[in-house]
Amino acid sequence: MNLLVRLGAWSLGSMQRLGRGSLFLLAVLWRLPGALVQFRLLLGQLYSVGVLTVQIIVVSALSVGMVLGLQGYNTLVDFNAEASLGQVVALSLVRELGPVLTALLFAGRAGSALTAEIGLMKVTEQISAMEMMAVDPLRRVVAPRFLAGVLSMPLLAALFSAVGVFGGYLAGVGLLGVDGGAYWSQMQAKVDFYGDVMNGVVKSVVFGWVATWIAVFEGYDAPPTNEGVSRATTRTVVHTAFAVLALDFVLTAIMFGN
């Protein structure tokens, strides 16, 4: 009985949050054209959301690519098919690991920072002060951050995949002696630009919207206390991870499920 009540309360609460989040998203979308005009603001946010995330993306992609190269080689060599290593590495990265891992890393690096930043602006009454100065905080604070996140994600994901493929090359060709020509030619033979690369890009675009949406909403919706902001920051990372993984399954089923 009690459990049912709690379940009900939880469902209602979640629905309410989703509703508020959707209204918030609409309000932000309405202000996006304005954000495009404020080029300097967008530039600053592209720096903190995009540029500052490049480091972790490159390092992670290189290591993921190298591990894929090593593990793929160990499996393929049993079938005398190590020439297909390039194809294995590239397909894994372009279709799945690039967009998904980028979104997860993005949530940890840029998403949590966005939430904390906006939340702290609420705690220190900066948002309130802006409203009192007749400046719309959704336009001035949220919209440029949202746009920067949406624009950065596909670029970061493409970077992840490209660096990862290079990492696989380092491990497979550099360390294990797979033929370099075969690595690239097998890859090119099997990776389709529209079917694989573009679908990966579509995924990263979707993830970019969702991850940034969650991050800015959690920040804007956080209770204006230190505790509220720290909880919101955690929620951003957790919810983004859930949302990205669930959406990835759905998108994969639609795109590659045939």
């Binding site: 493409a158 660096v163 630009f193």
Partner: peptide, 16 residues
């Protein structure tokens, strides 16, 4: 760099 990565994916990795 992001656009270049996309270009690499298009020209070097895939069959475009």
């Amino acid at each position: 760099v992001g656009l270049a990565a996309l270009l690499v994916l298009a020209l070097k990795v895939s069959n475009l």
